[in-house]
Simulated scan of single mutants.
Amino acid sequence: MSGPRVPRNSYAIYRAVNRIFKGISSPPQGDYHEVVRYMNEELPRFEQANSSYLVLGSYRGAYGQRLREFANCLNMPTNAESIVLGDTINLDTAVVPEFDIKINLLGEAADYIAGVYEKESGGESPELGVVRALFVNKTFVFPRDYTGLTRDSLETREDVIQAALAVYYADFDHLDNEHSVAEKKKEEIASLLTVAQEEGIDINERELTDLIKERQNNIDEPPAEYSWVHLSFFKRFEAMTQCHPWTTMPELRDHADEMPGPERPQWETEFDVGMFCDE
């Protein structure tokens, strides 16, 4: 009769468990059982994958839908597995915080971590701080509407897009009627394009209009705002080439390919629907 199977990432799990109970002199036996239960429930999926991903972000409402859509993109290759932290089982502990157990075990067990960010408030803020401190080298961040630390001028194509979105979603409450608001926005965006051309930024009116319409159709929200702390974290990951900003859902889905790991299925690019059509 064989003994218990040792997980392939046992050393990482030991590190996680040591952190979970660090500083707690005598945790209740039930807390130990909950840690083991979580390991048995959630970690086997990572064990069976060649590339595993822990996905962090906002887990509710439209934010959660977009987060899970991104996680599904990571799951496309048959030998890849992604887990959204907010979708894992709930734990009943007396002393050890549930979040400590989840972020430490999943963060250590995953090959890579992906954080999708769209706002500065909520539980994603402490998560970002933890992965920056413990797992920075294997973490990739995907902040919506991020263009770098605050800038006063247009330097890149992304700067122009974000400035145009800010104009499009501005209230302009001081104007009298809807026509005046539309005309004002049109003038502001035309001015942006003039400055962009003067700066040698490659974007034209048709592209900018299409991007605004696409944004309106799938994420009809003003540009995301972040605290100075968030921006500093994003800047750190940007310096490590591990930060990938996005504006629309198609861009976020495409960014799944920026994560290390197996390639997407060949049929996505090689499938020819014409082979099933009658000639």
Rank of each mutant, 00 (worst) to 15 (best):
T209Q: 15
A190W: 00
E207G: 09
H230L: 05
K184A: 11
I212K: 03
D220H: 04
L231M: 13
L192P: 02
K186D: 08
P223T: 14
L231D: 14
A190R: 01
I219G: 10
S191V: 05
L231C: 14
D220Y: 06
T209S: 15
A224W: 00
V229Q: 09
K185L: 01
Y226D: 04
K186T: 06
N217Q: 14
E207V: 07
E199W: 10
S232N: 14
L211F: 03
A190C: 06
D210I: 08
G200Y: 03
K213D: 10
P222F: 01
K184V: 03
T209H: 13
A196W: 02
I203S: 08
A182Y: 09
Y226C: 06
W228H: 10
E225K: 12
P222R: 13
S227C: 12
E187C: 12
Q216T: 03
D202V: 01
R206W: 06
Q197Y: 03
E205Q: 12
Q197E: 15
Q216C: 10
D210F: 10
K185E: 00
T209W: 05
I189K: 01
A224T: 11
A190H: 06
T209K: 09
E183N: 06
E183K: 11
K186W: 01
V195K: 07
D220S: 09
L208M: 07
E221F: 09
I203W: 04
A196G: 03
L211E: 12
D220V: 00
S227T: 15
L231Q: 13
L231T: 05
A196K: 01
G200R: 03
E187L: 12
D220P: 03
K184T: 06
T209G: 11
V229A: 10
K186R: 07
A224C: 14
L211K: 11
P223H: 03
I212N: 05
D202W: 03
L192W: 00
E198F: 08
E188P: 06
D202C: 02
E214S: 11
V195R: 04
N217C: 09
K184S: 09
L208R: 04
A190N: 13
T194N: 12
V195H: 03
S191M: 15
E221N: 15
I212V: 09
Y226P: 05
L192A: 03
D202A: 04
T194V: 13
A224Q: 08
N204K: 10
E188F: 06
L193I: 11
L231H: 02
I201F: 04
S191D: 09
A196F: 00
I189L: 04
A190D: 15
A224D: 04
P222Q: 10
L208F: 01
E187K: 13
T194R: 11
N217R: 11
L192D: 05
Q216G: 08
I201Q: 02
R206P: 02
I212C: 11
E225V: 08
I219F: 04
E187Y: 05
K186N: 09
Q197I: 01
T194Q: 13
P223W: 00
D202N: 08
A182R: 15
L211A: 11
A182G: 06
D220E: 13
S227I: 10
N204Q: 08
K185G: 02
E214W: 02
P223D: 10
S191Q: 09
L231G: 10
N204L: 12
P222E: 12
Y226W: 00
I189G: 03
I201G: 01
K185I: 02
E221K: 15
E187G: 06
T209M: 08
